[in-house]
């Protein structure tokens, strides 16, 4: 069954794309297999306008106030925040590790840049993730084509501009195929 796509309300400011918020939380002690990952990830809701975005976002906990092993994902409507999704499987992500205390501000700046189409890379952006971990937090932005160096360079330069990060911040690009290999390498039978 195909879900009805959301539309902007009367007088609202439409976004270039519709987006969906997702939330996931790792159950301690469980292996992170694809199946359990998909079971742990919950849709919060979709929006089509600036005003609808604020209605969701204003009621959400700020990433810096989350505890445990949790993630917020914001992806274009129709793209699952998983490597296996058709839009992601040839793609990759820029990863920025943040010391504790920076996640809420960086996440907000990142998603506002994405919703406002600040990256200027056509259809390439898939979504963004903030991952709250024990000692540090991680934000990432996913794009469709990992091999397109012009696109990945442009995303990196836009990230530097919109996040206003300390100059020594390390940014790392990781293809999803590498992420899959790495995670398989940690399984006992691989």
């Amino acid at each position: 069954t195909k879900k009805k796509m959301v539309v902007p309300g009367a007088g609202e400011h439409p976004l270039q794309y519709n987006y969906t918020f997702w939330y996931s939380r790792r159950t301690p002690g469980r292996p992170a297999s694809t199946q359990s990952y998909e079971q742990n990830i919950k849709q919060i809701g979709s929006f089509a306008s600036v005003e609808q975005f604020w209605r969701f976002y204003s009621h959400m906990i700020r990433p810096g106030d989350l505890t445990g092993h949790s993630d917020f994902h914001l992806f274009k409507e129709g793209i699952k925040p998983m490597w296996e999704d058709d839009a992601n499987k040839m793609g990759g992500k820029w990863i920025i590790r943040l010391r504790k205390g920076l996640a809420s501000r960086c996440w907000e700046n990142l998603i506002l840049a994405m919703l406002g189409e600040q990256f200027m890379v056509g259809e390439e952006i898939c979504g963004a993730v903030v991952s709250v971990r024990f000692q540090e937090d991680i934000i990432s932005i996913w794009n469709k084509t990992a091999s397109d160096q012009g696109t990945t360079a442009r995303i990196r330069d836009t990230l530097r501009r919109v996040l206003n990060l300390p100059p020594n911040t390390i940014m790392e690009y990781k293809t999803h195929t590498d992420s899959i290999k790495y995670s398989l390498g940690r399984l006992p039978w691989a």
Binding site: G11, Q16, V50, E51, L115, G116, E117, Q118
Partner: peptide, 21 residues
């Protein structure tokens, strides 16, 4: 077609607009 581009300030200004409440 044209892309819908918004800067950070424009988006933040919509945060408290009556229509968003």
């Amino acid at each position: 077609g044209t892309r819908i581009i918004y800067d950070r300030k424009f988006l933040l200004d919509r945060r408290n607009s009556p229509i968003a409440q």
